[in-house]
Each structure stands twice: as C-alpha cells, then as structure tokens.
Design a protein around this nucleic acid. Structure first.
Lengths: 148, 148
DNA sequence: TCCATTTATATGCAACTGCATTGATATAGA
DNA sequence: TCTATATCAATGCAGTTGCATATAAATGGA
C-alpha cells in the first residue's frame, strides 16, 4: 500500500505557504538591513526576553522561537558578544543558565521596531487588506503552528 | 512623522506565517531526510524542470523558486555534480545556459514524491482539515506571494 | 566601429545552519 | 553509595546562504 498523497488544493497551499513566507521575510529583512540593523533573529530574541520580563532560559527561547538548540546557543553567543544580552548561571541547576537582556538590548529593540513594524505593514498588512483578513489567516495557520 | 505600524492582528499574522512555515518545513524536511533523500531544494528544481518540459534557464528557475541568483547557480552546481541535471550552452546568447533534467533526475523526482507528498499531507493537509480550508489559505496568501 | 552600460552567470568570503558528538550536571534505581 | 540514564548546553565540521564583486557576453549610442 501507499500512503495517501495530498490533494491539489493542499499541495498548492503548501507551495504558497513556503513562497509567501520566503518572499515576505526576504523583503522585511532587506528593509531592516537597509536601515543598518542586525538580522531579524536578533530582534526576535530581544523581544521574547522583553516580553518575558527580561530573562529566559535557552530552552525557553528555543521553544518560543522554534529554533534548534545549537542554533539558540550560537545566536546567544552573538548577542552576548554585542552586549545585548548577558549569560548568567542558573541557581539550582548547574547545567542551566539564564539569558538576560541588557539596557543596550532593550534600546536596540526599541529602535528597530519602527522599521520592522513598517515593513510588516508594507509587505503583509497592506497585502492582506483588513484586520479581519489577517485574523482569518491566523485561524488557518494556527493548527500548523501548534504542537502535535 | 512616523510610518504607521501594523495592527496587532497583522503582527500576529506575520508571526504565524513565519512559525507555520518554519515548523512545517522542518518536519517535512526531516521526513525526506529520514527516507535517505537529498534536500527539498533539489526536489523543487527537478519538479520545475519536469513541469517545464525538461529544461529551463537559470533565471527562470530563480523566478519560479524565489531564490537568489547566486543561490540557483550553486544549487545547479550540486545537482549537476550528482548528474541529476546537465548544463548546456544557450544558443543565441553566449552568456546564458540551459539546465536540462537527466533520466536520473526524473527518476529521483518520481521516487521522492511519495515521501514528500505524504509529509505534506501529514503536516499541512491533515491540519487544515478540508480542501475548502486549503483553498481559503491559498486565497489569503496569494497577494503576499504575488509581485508588486 | 568603439566604448559605456546592461544583462547572465559565477565566485570569494563571511555568516549562518544542520548534524553529530561532547562535556557537564542531574536524576533514578540497584 | 554507585552506576546508568537523562537533560542542558556547547562545539567541530560540513553544507548552505547572503553579500559584494568578478567575468563574460550583449546592447545602445557616439
């Protein structure tokens, strides 16, 4: 026997998902870079830390950003090198650590948002049209994002 | 003045678009790799060539796959190295070339599809539920994929 | 015809990613 | 307590990507 393949509609949805993300991400990254800022991944880390109250453990970053473990490790290396975050020991588990955002990190996050937000609006918001459409997209994508 | 930022709904749609694609692509790639096949990008090239009747110029691949020029150049290097495609001179423009799929390339494409299709169905189709949902997603993503 | 400009593709280098493995600590069971 | 196993994070290495630039051919005037 062979497993059932996807319908043409599903296949098309897959292709569009890949292409829409690739295209939008590339355009947004280009705007960010043109403004002289570091990669989007840096912003993502800073924002997660800020939302979490300033600190997170590497594995929490991993889960929230959907990144691989070794990837988080080296991303944090680069942010720490730029003094945007600090690594601190995690009391109570000698293997663990705490990643803490610095003043410089908070500051960079704040400065990046206007450029980042404008790009999202330009390449995604304006193309979706209305908030209702944006919400409909969220609803459709939610089960793909969710675990399981 | 400052440019208008995205609404919360648009911002959420952006985040979901990134995460849904990242998650689905990672899961699909893992299945393909577990079955002993080369990266998805190879399949994409082979399929485009097949659909185009066997040959395409590098810039056509670039447009269809939404890849950067230098990326296509090196992707073709690897496929040619594996004898899945051939580079041929393009008569009429000495700068150009023709990428032609080989028998081996066609064969690999055929062998990969069952695994690839099953993964798409598992990680995207099943989560979307119905074809109507898949089509709705296509409709929403279309303006993001489109040029302009 | 000659030169400047544009177009098609390739390449050197640095940054990033995946993969496998390692090092170190923690936990559970004999 | 001792050992096996599991968990948290880092690292060596190869493959891939981005960025800038190079090379080569084509095109459009002067």
């Amino acid at each position: 026997m062979s497993l059932p393949g996807p319908s043409p509609a599903v296949t098309r949805a897959w292709v569009y998902l890949i292409k829409a993300q690739r295209r939008a991400l590339r355009l947004v990254e280009a705007d960010i870079k043109a403004a002289g800022f570091p990669p989007l991944a840096w912003y993502d880390v800073l924002l997660e830390l800020k939302h979490a109250g300033g600190t997170l453990r590497p594995q929490e970053l991993e889960a929230r950003l959907l990144l691989a473990q070794h990837n988080v490790s080296r991303l944090v290396d680069r942010l720490a090198e730029a003094e945007l975050v600090q690594r601190r020991p995690y009391e109570g588990d000698g293997r663990g650590q705490i990643i803490a955002i610095t003043e410089g990190g908070l500051n960079l996050q704040r400065r990046m948002w206007p450029v980042y937000g404008a790009a999202i609006q330009k390449y995604v918001g304006a193309r979706l049209g209305t908030d209702a459409t944006a919400e409909a997209l969220c609803t459709l994508l939610e089960p793909i994002v969710a675990d399981g």
